[in-house]
Amino acid sequence: MSDWEPKIVSFLCNWCSYGAADLTGVSRMQYPPNIRIVRIPCTGRMSPKFALAALREGADAVWVSG
């Protein structure tokens, strides 16, 4: 279990968090490559169904930010 790496699916608001993730890149900040980002137009678009689907498809965590 020591080399276990979580899979994280994140749903980011186009207007803030997705832009922040872009800025993280511009600033060359480093983070582990375990995360996959799905762009949504607003966190208002987020449905519990998406979170459940991601978990069902094997994600260890779902992160919604916006």
Binding site: D22, T24, G25, V26, M29, Q30, Y31, P33, I37
Partner: peptide
């Protein structure tokens, strides 16, 4: 988005960045 969300933020991990 394979630059801002990938190559720029995983520069020490080319293999996983490619994946």
């Amino acid at each position: 988005n394979i630059r801002n969300h990938d190559s720029w933020v995983h520069k020490n991990n080319p293999e996983l960045a490619t994946k």
